[in-house]
Design a protein around this nucleic acid. Structure first.
Length: 562
RNA sequence: GUCCCAGUAGCUCAGCUGGAUAGAGCAACAGCCUUCUAAGCUGUGGGUCGCAGGUUCGAAUCCUGCCUGGGACGCCA
């Protein structure tokens, strides 16, 4: 079904080996304008080799190249353009998709391989911010896409459940906290305490010492501190679980920072044994001047470890535990340097598998062009945003289709879908200006647009005479053709999105397919009772299969009725 | 100061590993529901692709410099 490859082969034989297949394949492109056909081969590179004008080469090739899957080849200036045989190609494509169903587009590149994906990783006792949403949504989509490529994906939520902020929190709790309030609304109350601490510390600097003291107590196993920490952690996890439930995301591991506390000593010892540690201003570091990077800090002056130490321990532990072939870290772009350092240190330790570690950075969510500040408590709560989206979706359903049976359920799919899609439709590196109105928009290039298209298509299938036993024939009209071609692109889209670790590739794809289908829907009466009806229905069915699967990869549900 | 990311229509963004005439959505305006879900479709207007060089048969795309915005740069994560 790979016509690009076949087209290249035809050219290859006709060229009598003047160019290798490896040289021809990347040259083949899709013409920008459909009047130019489906495949194009520019002859510029050949012109030099053959000492002939590109136009002439194209002309000569057009007379020679032919194959059953090609309707014709035409020389258009320096290009050799190939037109696919719509009858044969469309029949094959639709038969294939309807046979494979949701497995269409699955790849085997990752078969027998494992990938760990570190994502979401919220901080305990702090609200789930919009920034964490990005990591969560991108990571989940990439995990799904990895699985589609054949990998076994391990979803790891590397919780921020350790660190000096707990000293601050315990201090604040003992001064101003109440058990009752925390139980009532854990995250809000804990976050309130955290914010209060930062407010008060300006007037009472000794609070910092108090916080340090309590963190020290925590580290050395003080029972009181430990009990509080455990409690805060549990309450926070309960809150996060609500959000993951709404987003329909599950993890294989919640081993966060605290989990590695007892595993860092070994790492430090190993670094010492391998003679990688050096002293600098009282701290212990791995020097990276050869790599033109600032040194990687391993231990503070006071002997405490740092996040680099923790991440080293985590990487080594994960390699041992999961035997991964690849490992992704879905973490904001501001931590680029940290991951560069981390991977280099692992290399220096002799771990060649460090080459398979990949930081997948993403842009900020900005408020008025600036990074949102969490310390001052000015944060938009994700849970509120999701609830608002669901609520709005519900109102829309009430207005447009009040007879719908399971309105609450569908509203949830639509509202959550809107938020996920809004995040995934653009390249992850772009910064996003926080804009609630835009997130909750339900027209144009949105998740709903895709869901709506899917529901429309499903509606047609419900009305079709008999959905089963479709006698699929080829479709040759110009309205179905772009859909067929886009449907055929799906496997390539999966591959590309995985290689680039870019879920937006899939999001853009489902938008494009939806757009083409909606045009078709407008022009063609699908249920018209004529000889091609079953073929058209096969096309509609193919579209629903691919849209549903594409949305699933992004983490979005595709209701059959809207 | 050094390094990283970005700069394309009024706004938000596409543009595949260089290829033919620069593409969507939103916003504006004009149309399309007795007929498969109008949360849709069709049409119109709107561009010195940040600036200046360079490489090439060919540059929005690659290289260099500059400008603008954001970020990172040792004891937070």
């Amino acid at each position: 079904m790979n016509y690009r490859q076949q087209f290249a082969e035809e050219i290859y034989t006709q060229l009598e080996k003047k160019l290798d297949m490896d040289e021809i394949i990347p040259l083949i492109e899709e013409p920008k304008y459909n009047t130019h056909g489906d495949l194009a081969f520019p002859c510029f590179t050949l012109a030099k080799k053959l000492q002939k004008a590109p136009r002439q080469i194209a002309m000569e090739l057009s007379e020679k190249v032919s194959a059953p899957f090609l309707e014709k080849t035409v020389a258009a200036g320096p290009y050799l353009n190939g037109f696919l045989n719509k009858e044969i190609v469309s029949k094959q494509a639709m038969e294939h998709i309807n046979k494979e169903q949701e497995n269409y587009g699955s790849l085997s590149a990752g078969a027998e391989k494992t990938i760990t994906i570190d994502f979401s990783s919220p901080n305990i006792a702090k609200p789930f911010s919009m920034g964490h949403l990005r990591s969560t949504v991108i990571g989940n989509a990439l995990a799904n896409i990895s699985e589609k490529c054949g990998y076994k994906a391990i979803r790891i939520n590397h919780l921020g459940d350790w660190g000096t902020q707990f000293g601050k929190l315990i201090t604040a709790y003992q001064l101003w906290g109440s058990e009752e309030k925390v139980r009532e609304n854990p995250i809000k109350e804990l976050f309130h305490l955290y914010v209060s601490f930062h407010e008060q510390v300006e007037k009472q600097p000794h609070l910092e010492d108090e916080a340090r003291f309590w963190f020290k107590q925590l580290e050395s196993g003080n029972e009181e501190a430990l009990q509080l920490w455990k409690w805060f952690r549990e309450e926070s996890l309960k809150e996060f679980a609500k959000i993951y439930e709404l987003l329909n995301i599950k993890f294989d591991s919640y081993d966060g920072e605290a989990f590695y506390n007892d595993k860092m000593d070994d790492v430090v010892q190993e670094l010492k044994a391998k003679d990688l540690l050096s002293h600098s201003d009282g701290a212990e570091v791995v020097d990276l001047t050869d790599e033109k990077l600032p040194p990687c800090l391993i231990k503070k002056k006071d002997g405490a470890t740092l996040y680099a130490t923790r991440d080293l321990a985590a990487a080594i532990y994960r390699k041992k535990t999961y035997q991964f072939d690849k490992s992704f870290y879905i973490v904001g772009q501001e931590q680029r340097l940290h991951f560069q350092q981390l991977f280099l240190v692992l290399q220096k330790m002799g771990y060649n598998w460090a080459a398979e570690l990949k930081h997948v950075p993403f842009g900020f969510i900005l408020k008025d062009g600036k990074k949102m500040s969490t310390r001052k408590g000015k944060v938009v709560l994700l849970e509120d945003v999701i609830k608002e989206a669901i609520n709005l979706a519900y109102q829309n359903i009430e207005a447009k289709n009040p007879a719908l049976i399971n309105k609450e359920e569908v509203a949830k799919m639509v509202g959550v879908g809107a938020i996920i899609f809004h995040d995934l439709k653009n390249e992850r590196q772009n910064n996003i200006e926080f804009n609630l109105d835009e997130m909750l928009r339900f027209e144009g290039s949105t998740g709903l647009y895709v869901q709506y298209t899917h529901a429309r298509a499903c509606s047609i299938l419900r009305k079709a005479p008999s959905e089963n036993n479709l006698a699929i024939g080829g479709l040759t009209d110009s309205y179905s053709w772009p859909i067929i071609k886009t449907l055929m692109d799906f496997p390539d889209v999966i591959e590309k999105s995985f290689q680039q670790a870019e879920a937006s590739v899939v999001a853009k794809y489902v938008l494009k397919l939806s757009q083409e289908f909606n045009k078709y829907y407008g022009y063609i009466k699908i249920l018209a009772d004529d000889a091609e009806q079953s073929s058209r229905l096969a096309l509609v069915k193919s579209v629903t299969i691919v849209l549903k699967e594409g949305l699933r990869l992004l983490g979005i549900k595709a209701p059959e009725k809207l």
